[in-house]
Write a protein that binds this DNA or RNA. Sequence first.
DNA 1: GAACCTTTTCACTATTTAGTTAGAAAGCGA
DNA 2: TCGCTTTCTAACTAAATAGTGAAAAGGTTC
Lengths: 222, 222
Amino acid sequence: MAENLPAVEVRKRDPEGTRRDIMAVATVEFANQGFAGARVDKIAEDTATTKRMIYYYFGSKEGLYLAVLEAAYEEVRLLETNLNVDDLEPLLALRQLAEFTYDHHTSHQAFIRLVQIENIHRAEHLEKSQRIRDLNSTAIFTLESIIKRGVDGGIFRSDIDALDAHMMISAYSIFQVANQHTFKSIFGRDMLDANLHDKYRRLAGDMIVDVMTQVLPPSQKK
Amino acid sequence: MAENLPAVEVRKRDPEGTRRDIMAVATVEFANQGFAGARVDKIAEDTATTKRMIYYYFGSKEGLYLAVLEAAYEEVRLLETNLNVDDLEPLLALRQLAEFTYDHHTSHQAFIRLVQIENIHRAEHLEKSQRIRDLNSTAIFTLESIIKRGVDGGIFRSDIDALDAHMMISAYSIFQVANQHTFKSIFGRDMLDANLHDKYRRLAGDMIVDVMTQVLPPSQKK
DNA sequence: GAACCTTTTCACTATTTAGTTAGAAAGCGA
DNA sequence: TCGCTTTCTAACTAAATAGTGAAAAGGTTC
């Protein structure tokens, strides 16, 4: 009866598929519960396979977590490469980068949760993954080039480097996702409300553009 | 031999002291390990009293966590009231508030960790605490007054309200603490390095002042 | 068809964990 | 002194938890 129905049990042996199944489920569980809070039995339950296979492929809970973390960083990096702003004037390029980052982060909340969890653990797992540390965010190179052009053109401050700018853009975007729950609970505002999205995306651009374009007059004591 | 030595076992019955002892230790443990990661036995071990007393006073692990969270929010609120910027012109007041917040957050890292942990839990514990939700940050009232003066004076944008401004200031300051570990691991920069503190405090002020003082000309398409 | 890889089954273990029982000693305020 | 509160001791429990053992069967590849 079921043999002709679409691909649910088409695969009999599909190691890659099994790994992907486990990791997809584990990503959700780790992002939702944290490393200590996640339950291997729960993950196994939600997959099409068994706990034994988790250990067969990933060795340990930590091994699985690390695989999930690596995959999340890699996926995000892939998406980053979609942005090309080399043809735009620095001001517009910077705005585009910031607004793209904002959209990107607000639509990859599981990734942000994993990053926050990793920070609670003081990045101890990330430190173990040479692979993640290698795939240095491409956003930095893009930013470096934009900033160089803006500084050379005399329209950008020269005392904010690419990492500083990245920090500000990330801070703004990540905060809205990462701290949405306490913010809403205390102030009653849902920062991710669809009605606010356009305003907050624009504000991400305003924020970084406005601060970068304040070329300091020597008179102003700072 | 030990009877004349300073206050270690001075107290015989000191319920308040016992509570404080437990909470101080629990704050560290929860901030470091998260709720699921924290161990009641470990907390008991690090106090001068026993596990039984933790349950005597706090009922459960969650009860203790909630007490810790409430105390942390209250302490931070107390410190916020130290700031008085009513006499300053709005531009300087805003800068002072931002830079004060930056200093404040970078020197209360345990609190920030608790907030991040609470966000991982989608603020479910915070929701249970009417007490925390009541002590609405005084920073908001201060900000409201500053912004009103700035907007009335024609030097501030009128489309950014106090919560928006608070969000930007918090995002900047909290990010540097909350995400310091992944940031350092990936980019090699310690955002909390003492040598960078002055620069980053100033930048907190620049960021919010620059974005607020961009009064939009109608011609500029936004 | 042989060797190897993947998958299933499932009971099992050792440890950790939050939380308890029960009693008793001792301080403190009235 | 009486009664209530606080503190300590120390074993104990029940459940949850990460991880394993061992065997067998079914695919896959060469």
